[in-house]
Design a protein around this nucleic acid. Structure first.
Length: 435
DNA sequence: CAGAATGAAAC
DNA sequence: GTTTCATTCTG
């Protein structure tokens, strides 16, 4: 009788923990839409629930029987959202399909060995009476039915960030309101946005840091990046134009990591010739509804720590130093653990323009960058290496860092020094000084 | 081998 | 309850 949990042992990792399937487009839509419901949704649900529907029920024997039942709340919601889904244009659906492809790609990267293995229960059933929804209409209302604070009808809400609906597919849990205690403001709601249900990228977290002036280069970057990608979308914020990428190369990164840095078009930062240059010293961030940056980051000057070609599972950390307060020390300690190094000497990747090429070749960045503050205390350094067969301390450190990061690390809070300390490497997050 | 059937994904 | 995808079953 316990939950029909039947945790099928997924052959993903020997850890034995179940790995869920990647969500398909509709699942993504439903997941999102269920938190962006119209105000009168309860009326709609009541209406749906009031009408019993024929449902297949397992009979005592083997054959299924049809019974008339009233749907519970979730079922009613599914009926409603399914109808909405079918009403959608291809263009609207395509947005979600893109999302689903991204989720699938990320899933594959994270679980390379994953294989969907549905179990066949139809064959030998018989004693299986555990089903019994018995839910019946009696109670059902247990659902605390999300207050759904806010949005009028099917209109995207402007504020209130949301949690990660798919923690398995996106590696980090991001704070709902990353900058709640800081001096960030939200722009006014843009107008003329598509109705809810068609827009996965709700403008939940689009902040402008008033401590910095708007970059004049913005439009230049905007136009430049737009010309590079057909996968971008434009929206009106009411105070500026901006774009964000939704293509398969869009890199999702934890928003908090990017305080004080510039984000640029994912996958195009390099091809466009270094938008980090365009944005030197300016502050911008575009985040999707989960609080992830949907763009890749670039920093002042030449310290481009983010690889636009490496997606989240491969990318461990990239905390940008506050602009103007650090200098980049490109000299890496030689001889230090050269054993685990790949043959390539890729020191230039951070300093030169060809870093992207190096990244692409390797797929995984394996380099260490040390950024020193004026006082020359180490601000941060990191490397990545997720080759599980690699037992070097560096690789193990990487995995450990990443694991901690996945487990919530401290990325939810104002970062503090010493939150992550591994193998003599401190992952330090200096307080943001602003100007 | 083609098409049907089914499980699993979030809520 | 929904849609989609991958897998497995059936003929």
């Amino acid at each position: 009788m316990p939950p029909v949990r039947r945790v099928k042992k997924s052959k993903t990792r020997k850890t034995g923990e179940h790995v869920p399937r990647p969500p398909n487009s509709f699942m993504l839509f439903r997941s999102w839409a269920s938190q962006n419901l119209p105000e009168d949704i309860e009326d709609v649900i009541d209406e749906i629930r009031s009408k019993p529907r024929p449902v297949k029920v397992k009979g005592k024997g083997k054959e299924k029987e049809i019974e008339m039942k009233r749907p519970n709340r979730n079922s009613a919601l599914s009926i409603y959202l399914g109808a909405r889904w079918r009403e959608m244009d291809d263009d609207e659906r395509e947005i979600w399909e893109t999302k689903a492809r991204e989720a699938k790609d990320a899933h594959e990267r994270r679980y390379p060995d994953y294989k969907y293995q549905p179990t066949r229960k139809a064959c030998l059933k018989s004693e299986d009476e555990s089903e019994s929804e018995d839910v019946d209409d009696s109670e059902v209302d247990v659902s605390e039915g999300q207050p759904v604070a806010g949005p009028s009808t099917l209109v995207p809400m402007g504020g209130s960030g949301r949690g990660n609906h798919y923690p398995h597919h996106y590696p980090v849990t991001v704070p709902l309101q990353p900058y709640a205690n800081q001096n960030w403001v939200q722009p006014p709601l843009q107008q003329g946005r598509p109705r809810v249900g068609a827009e996965p990228y709700t403008l939940h977290a689009y902040y402008h840091n008033p401590r910095y002036s708007l970059p004049q280069e913005w439009m230049a970057w905007d136009n430049a990046s737009r010309s590079h990608s057909g996968a971008q979308q434009t929206f009106q914020t009411g105070w500026n134009n901006s774009t964000w990428a939704s293509g398969s190369h869009a890199t999702h990164l934890p928003a908090q990591q990017f305080e004080g840095c510039v984000t640029s078009d994912a996958g195009h930062a390099s091809t466009s010739g270094g938008s980090e240059d365009l944005f030197e010293g300016s502050e911008y961030g575009v985040y999707d509804e989960d609080g992830y940056s949907v763009s890749t980051a670039s920093y002042p000057s030449s310290s481009a720590q983010v690889n636009p070609h490496v997606s989240v599972p491969d990318l461990v950390s990239c905390h940008p130093p506050p602009p103007g307060t650090v200098t980049v020390d490109d000299t890496r300690a030689e001889g230090e653990d050269a054993a685990s190094e790949s043959a390539h000497d890729s020191d230039s990747m951070y300093a030169g323009e060809d870093y992207a090429e190096d990244f692409q070749l390797e797929g995984i960045a394996e380099d260490t960058q040390e950024v020193r503050a004026p006082e020359s205390e180490p601000v941060f350094r990191w490397s990545f290496n997720f080759d599980e067969d690699d037992t070097s301390w560096r690789a193990e450190r990487d995995r450990e860092v990443f694991r901690r990061w996945l487990s919530g690390a401290k990325v939810d809070d104002q970062p503090r020094s010493g939150d992550v300390r591994i193998c003599n490497t401190e992952w330090v997050f200096p307080p943001y000084e602003g100007n």
